[in-house]
């Protein structure tokens, strides 16, 4: 039990929260980076290798496209269906191989990225499928290569949907990062467990909840703003009051 009236309680709380927030942002940030790096191409391939897609016949070989599509579908579905707690434990040998340890924030990045990649890949798939096929045809009629179509049409035209999808993904990475804290992954989750739960400090618990809430709010606000910034669809602009603001 921690006594809030004890000397140094508040500065200690502040210190713990600062370190926890730093660790959380680090874990989430690096995990997001990997998620985008892997999830974006994965999502694009997921759509592209479908029948009639851009990559339905890689290297002019149609069965190859079908095989790639099946494999990716399987991997994504598997990744999405295994509960995170189990995934985290199951990945321990892999994490140890990659990071050298399975404890701490750096180690936590591995399961976070692994759970987020298939999730984000699905988001990418949905966003890319929304792009009007006429735009792809227009680019084809101008002599575009498949990669030019991806880079100049598919990604830019789905950018606002992608940003919103990424923000949803990041929100769930934040949630999972708190869960990682329960197995010594560090971050705000670990603060909540160590102080809030094991030492009955309600103040720590509430502070963690507020901090995570603020992080998610800022993230959502940023995503909404960016998504609007990149959307030129000329939707009637909503009044300022209904726009979620950052702070």
């Amino acid at each position: 039990m921690i006594d809030p009236t004890a000397p140094g309680f508040w500065s200690g709380l502040f210190q713990v929260l600062l370190v926890g927030t730093g660790e959380t942002l680090y874990m989430v940030g690096v995990a997001v980076l990997f998620t985008v790096l892997v999830g974006l191409p994965l999502g694009i391939l997921l759509v592209g290798t479908e029948r009639g897609g851009l990559f339905e016949a890689p290297f002019g070989y149609r069965p190859l496209g079908r095989v790639i599509n099946r494999v990716l579908e399987f991997v994504v579905n598997l990744g999405r269906s295994v509960p995170f707690i189990i995934l985290m434990v199951a990945l321990i040998p892999f994490t140890r191989l990659v990071v050298g340890t399975f404890i701490g924030s750096t180690a936590a990045i591995v399961p976070l990225a692994v759970v987020a990649i298939p999730f984000f890949a699905r988001m990418v798939e949905i966003a890319i499928k929304e792009v009007d096929s006429g735009l792809v045809e227009a680019a084809e009629s101008l002599g575009a290569t498949r990669w030019q179509i991806v880079a100049k049409v598919l990604v830019p035209e789905s950018l606002s949907t992608l940003i919103l999808g990424l923000s949803t993904t990041v929100t769930s990475i934040i949630n999972f990062s708190a869960m990682v804290g329960t197995v010594a992954g560090g971050g705000l989750g670990q603060v909540a467990i160590q102080y809030g739960y094991q030492r009955y400090s309600t103040i720590h618990m509430v502070a963690v909840i507020i901090l995570i809430f603020i992080i998610v709010m800022i993230l959502q606000g940023l995503a909404t703003w960016l998504a609007r910034r990149f959307s030129h669809r000329g939707r009637p602009t909503r009044s300022r009051a209904t726009v979620p603001t950052a702070i």
């Binding site: 006429g134 045809e137 227009a138 101008l142 002599g143 100049k152 959307s231 030129h232």
Partner: peptide, 18 residues
């Protein structure tokens, strides 16, 4: 390459919104 010599205009314009 050959397609670059052939311009195409579409009924629904097909312009990139972004």
């Amino acid at each position: 390459l050959a397609r670059r010599k052939i311009g195409m205009v579409f009924q629904h314009f097909n312009l990139l919104a972004g």
